[in-house]
Simulated scan of single mutants.
Amino acid sequence: MQQRNEQDVMAAWGDRRVPLLSVICLAYNHAAFIKETLDGFLRQETDFPFEVIVHDDASTDTTAAIIREYAALYPSVIKPIYQQQNQYRLGVPFSTRLFAQAEGKYIAYCEGDDYWTDPRKLQIQVDFLEQHRDYVMTYHDAFMFNSQGVVCSPHMQGKFRKDATARELMQARPVSTLTVCFRNLVHELPPELHGVEVLDICWWSLLGAHGKGKFIEEIKPAAYRVHEGGIFSMRSSKQRIQMTTHAYYSLARYYQRIGDQSLYEYFMIQVFAQILASISPISKLQALGQVFQNISINLLRRLTPGV
């Protein structure tokens, strides 16, 4: 598809220049992919202004140079941020900080190794949120692929290809992160969530306090790339479980502090479920046997006073 120039992108915006929506794009060593990502943003056909905040986290390849080329061609749309020191390794929750810097009323999120396929995506999502104040976010489908082709399609399976209640969002229900468009309400993280690597499920939980989630089937699936440089997708199963467990435990601590006992208990149950998932079947049987033995001993003591 032929690349549009800046005038084409802004043609339907009229005299309006304050962005209604901010696209947040995190990039690190994505030189092989970032052009496809940025082209997916620039193909968006909207009747409202949007900005693209591209955060390069001190890439060691030519990612920053490619971003500079695009920023020079689209200075009114693309707003780059170049880090001199890698923020991810420092544990800085920079993605959430970008939400606070964004001018948009809405946030759309896509990392620099993924891309959007539907030029009407943003218009459809913003139109829905403008018309339905009881919804805080929208999302759609995605497919996973690698250098050999499609790995799994669709990305969202079964029960997740539908709307989410506010409670389900607060329980960190899975959503395809590269497909989301949500109200720009999360500007900082509670201290309990600092250091969490799987931050997206924390965003959904915090956003759930403000409304529901809408699955929009008509939007074409976005493309989720699985490659060796992927922060989450290429981690081992054990590492992914550890990262998710940490996120659940951090959310449990947060909800305990603010006095939401039911959500505290829910996330603690998820922590224990993740721990069980990470140990071998033999260890599970041994652990359950030990629990049964302890329960039996305690019960026997209660039934035999004086022993």
Results as ranks from 00 to 15, higher is better:
residue 298 N to K: 10
residue 306 G to Y: 03
residue 58 A to Y: 07
residue 306 G to S: 09
residue 51 E to Y: 04
residue 202 C to S: 14
residue 251 L to S: 06
residue 292 F to L: 15
residue 194 H to Y: 15
residue 278 S to M: 12
residue 10 M to E: 15
residue 245 T to P: 00
residue 284 K to Y: 05
residue 128 F to E: 06
residue 102 A to Y: 01
residue 205 S to Y: 10
residue 251 L to Y: 08
residue 221 P to S: 08
residue 240 R to W: 06
residue 28 Y to R: 04
residue 268 M to V: 05
residue 260 D to S: 07
residue 300 L to I: 06
residue 133 R to E: 07
residue 191 P to C: 07
residue 180 V to H: 03
residue 31 A to M: 08
residue 111 E to N: 15
residue 211 G to P: 05
residue 158 G to L: 13
residue 247 A to N: 10
residue 114 D to C: 14
residue 280 S to C: 05
residue 145 F to D: 01
residue 235 R to D: 03
residue 43 R to P: 00
residue 69 E to V: 11
residue 135 Y to Q: 04
residue 215 F to I: 07
residue 272 F to I: 01
residue 256 Q to K: 09
residue 290 Q to R: 15
residue 148 Q to W: 03
residue 73 L to K: 14
residue 100 A to D: 06
residue 195 G to P: 12
residue 304 T to A: 09
residue 71 A to T: 08
residue 294 N to P: 00
residue 88 Y to K: 10
residue 68 R to P: 00
residue 212 K to T: 04
residue 133 R to S: 10
residue 129 L to S: 04
residue 46 T to I: 09
residue 229 G to A: 12
residue 64 A to F: 04
residue 133 R to C: 00
residue 135 Y to E: 05
residue 137 M to H: 04
residue 21 L to M: 09
residue 105 K to Y: 01
residue 227 H to F: 14
residue 43 R to A: 11
residue 52 V to S: 02
residue 109 Y to E: 02
residue 272 F to M: 11
residue 17 R to W: 08
residue 227 H to M: 08
residue 115 Y to G: 03
residue 293 Q to E: 08
residue 138 T to M: 01
residue 100 A to L: 02
residue 187 H to Q: 02
residue 217 E to H: 15
residue 159 K to V: 15
residue 128 F to V: 08
residue 219 I to L: 09
residue 180 V to L: 10
residue 5 N to R: 09
residue 284 K to Q: 15
residue 211 G to I: 01
residue 241 I to P: 01
residue 26 L to A: 12
residue 114 D to S: 11
residue 207 L to P: 01
residue 81 I to V: 14
residue 109 Y to R: 13
residue 152 C to I: 10
residue 52 V to T: 04
residue 67 I to D: 07
residue 5 N to V: 11
residue 47 D to P: 00
residue 209 A to I: 00
residue 28 Y to Q: 02
residue 197 E to M: 08
residue 135 Y to I: 10
residue 214 K to T: 07
residue 155 H to Q: 14
residue 181 C to R: 02
residue 204 W to L: 07
residue 59 S to R: 08
residue 196 V to Q: 02
residue 36 E to T: 10
residue 83 Q to K: 13
residue 168 E to P: 01
residue 151 V to Y: 05
